[in-house]
C-alpha cells in the first residue's frame, strides 16, 4: 500500500503487467512502471523513485471492527458480486496450491508457497513461517540487533509485530492465559513490569499503562516471493518441539 504523491503530483495507478508473478503498476501521469511489492519505479521517466509505504495491518474483519467501529469498508462492485465472480472464502488455500515459476536461483529452505510473515528492520529481514506463530504466540525474537515480537490475534490468523522496547528497555512478553474477554481481545503481559498489553500494542494496565509499542510492518507473502525481494533474509527457527 503506497502513498501516491510524487514531487507534489498525485499519480493514478493501473495494472500494466507482471514481473515474476508480482504486479507491475503504471501511472497515468508519466507512464512509469512500478513494482507493486516494493513501490520502486523500474522503468520510465520516474525510474529509481520509491513510493512511500502506507503502514497497514492484515486482520480478520471481527478484530478490525472491534478496534475501529467508526471505520469504513470497501464495498463489492455490485455487478461483479451479482455474477458471483469474487474470490470464495477458501481462495487463499487454492492460490497456495498454484504453481510457482522459479528461476535458477532457488532457495529450498522452505517450500515455495509456504506462507511467511516477513519483517524488515533496518537492513535486516526475517521470515517467520505463519504456522510457527500459530503454534507459539507471541514469538519473542531479535531481527539483527532489534528486539521484536510477533503476535497472532484471538482468531489465530491476524498478525501484528512490534519492537518490544520501552524507553530503551527490552521487554519479554507472554500471553495471558485467562484470555480474550469476549469483547476486549487477547492480552499480553510483560515479565519486567507485569503490565497488561492488548493486541494493538498498548499497555492497558500496570506500571506502563498508556505506553505504546512501535508497530512493525508485517508482509504476509509466499516464501518464494519474499525471497526474491529479500535475498539476504534469515528464517525464524521454532526449534525442536
Amino acid at each position: 500500500m503506497w502513498e501516491t504523491t510524487v514531487d507534489g503530483r498525485v499519480l493514478h495507478f493501473r495494472l500494466a503487467g507482471i514481473n515474476n508473478q508480482n504486479f507491475i503498476m503504471r501511472d497515468d501521469e508519466t507512464g512509469t512502471w512500478w513494482q507493486q511489492v516494493t513501490g520502486l519505479a523500474l522503468h520510465g521517466p520516474l525510474k529509481g523513485r520509491q513510493l512511500k509505504a502506507v503502514f497497514h495491518d492484515e486482520l480478520s474483519f471481527a478484530i478490525w471492527k472491534r478496534e475501529q467501529p467508526q471505520g469504513r469498508v470497501l464495498k463489492p462492485d455490485e455487478r461483479i458480486a451479482a455474477q458471483n465472480k469474487y474470490e470464495a472464502a477458501d481462495w487463499e488455500m487454492r492460490v497456495g496450491r498454484m504453481r510457482v515459476v522459479e528461476g535458477a536461483d532457488v532457495d529450498k529452505r522452505l517450500a515455495p508457497r509456504t506462507l511467511v510473515l516477513g519483517v524488515e528492520v533496518g537492513e535486516k529481514s526475517k521470515a517467520y513461517p505463519l504456522d510457527a506463530l500459530q503454534k507459539q504466540s507471541p514469538i519473542v525474537d531479535m531481527v539483527g540487533s532489534v528486539p521484536v515480537m510477533l503476535v497472532s490475534g484471538e482468531d489465530r490468523r491476524s498478525v501484528r509485530a512490534f519492537e518490544r522496547t520501552v524507553d530503551g528497555r527490552k521487554l519479554e512478553f507472554f500471553q495471558k492465559t485467562e484470555n480474550a474477554s469476549a469483547s476486549g481481545g487477547l492480552q499480553l503481559i510483560d515479565a519486567e513490569t507485569g503490565s497488561t498489553w492488548n493486541f494493538e500494542g498498548k499497555a492497558i494496565a500496570g506500571p506502563l499503562a498508556g505506553r505504546e509499542l512501535k508497530k512493525l510492518f508485517v508482509l504476509e507473502d509466499y516464501w518464494f516471493d519474499w525471497r526474491i525481494y529479500h535475498p539476504d533474509t534469515s528464517i525464524y527457527d521454532i526449534g525442536p518441539q
Binding site: D57, L59, S60, A62, R72, Y86
Partner: peptide, 28 residues
Amino acid sequence: NNDDRVMAVRIGGESVAYPIRLMGYHHL
C-alpha cells in the same frame, strides 16, 4: 464475514478496511 481478512489502514484518525477477497479480484 467476521473471519474474512481485511487490509486495514488508519491515517489521521480515519480508518479503512479493504476486504482481501475483493482486493484479490481488483488488486488496485
